[in-house]
Each structure stands twice: as C-alpha cells, then as structure tokens.
Amino acid sequence: MSMIQLSANGLVVVFGSGCAWSDEHSWSPVGQTVERSLTGALIVQSASAPAEAGRPVTLQGVEQGAGLVSLTDVQTLRGWAAEPGQVMTLTTPDGVREVIWRHHDAPAITADPYTFYDDQQAGDMYVVTAKLMVI
C-alpha cells in the first residue's frame, strides 16, 4: 500500500500503511436522468461532469489495523472538518487533488480507537474513515 496524505493550513496528516481510497473505481463522470413524458415516452438526458468535480473520495483502512492515524492527527482532521468549506490537498500515489469534506453524506469523519485506553495519549492510534470529494 502506498502513502496517502491530506494537508491544509501548513499541517499534514499521513494515513498509515493500508489506507485506501475505497470508492476510487466506483465513480463515473457521466450523470443521467430518466423521466417519462406525459405521453409515456422515455426522456433520457446524459452529460459528462467537468474533470473530477464532485468525485467521492472515501479514505479508510482496508484490513484490521490498517490506515491508522494518531490521536493528534484525528484532532487535526476534526478541526478541518469543523471549518465550513475547508479546502485540503489530497496526495495519493496517482496524483494531487483539491478536496472538501462530504458533510452531506454524514458523518464526514469517524474515528474509533484501535485499542481503547482510559487515559488517551497523543500517540494513541485510531481507525479513521474520512469522506471527501474532489472540487
């Protein structure tokens, strides 16, 4: 697995080994509506989206214990998610894209401790799912 990272405001969050863009190949740039006219005729309209705008990006570990991030990084991600319209730079092995959070597909971010401790420390590791979209 290759490195995936998000950056904004001079900060960088690197997702641990085993993090993947889980819906990378389940998107199509073609949009389509299908309706029936008053006479029953089928009306199909199709169009292609400009570049990748609106393409979903879901980052998550692909297996148990994969793609972990520290509590410090979780706090950074949550801070970015709390800023409406926060633009971040997503770097993956195949390129760099500008992304924002998918708040309309809530929750935009989830983070669960990999191992639960009563006294959380900055270096404790978390399993994160981040829902983003290309702008």
Rank of each mutant, 00 (worst) to 15 (best):
M1H: 03
S2E: 13
S2K: 00
Q5G: 02
S7N: 07
S7D: 09
S7P: 02
A8N: 09
L11R: 12
V12R: 02
V14P: 00
F15E: 10
G16Q: 03
G16C: 03
G18Y: 04
A20P: 00
S22G: 08
S22H: 05
S22Y: 04
H25D: 13
S26Q: 13
S28P: 03
G31H: 10
T33R: 06
E35G: 06
S37T: 12
T39I: 02
G40R: 01
S46D: 10
S46R: 13
S48C: 09
A49C: 07
P50M: 12
P50N: 11
P50L: 13
E52C: 06
R55I: 05
R55H: 01
P56I: 03
L59H: 03
Q60G: 13
D73E: 13
Q75A: 15
Q75P: 00
G79P: 01
A82C: 04
P84V: 02
Q86H: 01
Q86K: 08
M88E: 13
M88C: 11
T92A: 07
G95N: 01
V96M: 04
R97I: 02
R97V: 05
V99K: 06
I100N: 10
R102I: 02
R102A: 15
I109C: 08
A111P: 00
Y114H: 11
Y114L: 11
T115V: 15
Y117S: 12
Y117D: 11
D118R: 04
D118V: 14
D118H: 06
D118N: 11
D119R: 03
D119A: 12
Q121G: 14
Q121Y: 07
D124S: 10
A130C: 09
K131R: 15
K131L: 06
L132N: 08
